[in-house]
């Protein structure tokens, strides 16, 4: 049984909105990432998105770009990220979604990744620059190992396309709240709600909304029309501002 499906079933049962924090693996270092994952789970994260650092993150704004750079300067690789998941999965149950660009995964090999993801306890993979049309072999490889492949939909996605994506998607659908890159914003665009409505018409899968969701108030706003809210840059920016501190995790907890 899919842990992600269970999570959303449980949320629905308790009439709660889901909270999905995003952090970049290896920012500022891998040990801190492990501690942060455990803390985020303890703090009530329903699912965690774990970013695989990449040299050319075209879908990301400056905050997550810098996080990627910090991790790459430490030499963090996909194998390290998988090891990190394997370590924390001994302590936490919360589903983990790897959030990555295609090239590092391509280099690792899709079958090997599917196997390793299974072995280490990764529940799903979201590949920012892989659209379903190019994703056939990945869908098959992950399906064979019980790893879910999450697809994005965007305000520019037509209804026809939404229907096609819905057919191929598993786990949940990730609705991008706005046309743009990741980064904190002052408000939730109206596009987001109408996109979620359109996605609901096309699919029974749960829908998470992300990109630009930066405050608790915005998270609550998203819960009014979607199943879960993803917060990335706002958390990554806090990690950045504390990154030089030796007791990052303790201070992160204190601030929250």
């Amino acid at each position: 049984m899919s842990r992600i499906r269970d999570t959303f079933a449980e949320l629905k049962h308790t009439a709660r909105g889901g909270f999905i924090p995003f952090i970049t693996a290896g920012d500022p270092d891998l040990v801190t990432t492990e501690l942060l994952l455990i803390e985020l789970a303890a703090a009530g994260a329903d699912i965690i998105e774990l970013g695989v650092p990449f040299s050319d993150p075209v879908a990301d704004g400056e905050v997550i770009q810098r996080a990627s750079e910090r991790a790459l300067r430490k030499g963090v690789t996909l194998s390290d990220v998988l090891r990190c998941v394997s370590n924390v999965k001994q302590h936490i149950e919360v589903p983990i979604v790897l959030f990555s660009y295609l090239n590092p995964l391509l280099k690792f090999g899709k079958d090997q990744l599917a196997e390793e993801a299974k072995r280490t306890g990764v529940d799903a993979v979201l590949i920012t620059d892989l659209i379903p049309e190019e994703g056939g072999p990945w869908i098959t490889a992950f399906h064979d190992h019980g790893i879910e492949l999450i697809f994005l939909v965007a305000p520019t996605t037509s209804n026809d396309r939404l229907a096609r994506i819905a057919q191929l998607a598993s786990g949940f659908i990730y609705a991008v709240s706005r046309s743009g890159v990741t980064g904190e914003r002052n408000e939730i665009p109206r596009d987001a709600e109408s996109l979620v409505k359109r996605a609901r018409a096309a699919s029974d899968l749960p829908i998470a909304v992300g990109f630009g969701i930066s405050t608790a108030e915005q998270v609550r706003q998203v819960w009014r029309f979607a199943d879960a809210a993803v917060t990335g840059s706002a958390i990554v920016r806090q990690i950045e501002s504390l990154a030089d501190s030796p007791d990052l995790v303790a201070r992160y907890e204190a601030k929250n």
Binding site: T156, S158, G180
Partner: peptide
């Protein structure tokens, strides 16, 4: 018709760019 020369080419982009 999708811009593939054999295994090369295609479209590897964020979903937002598919429509444009």
């Amino acid at each position: 018709e999708h811009g593939h020369w054999g295994e090369f080419g295609g479209r590897y982009v964020p979903e937002t760019l598919v429509a444009p």
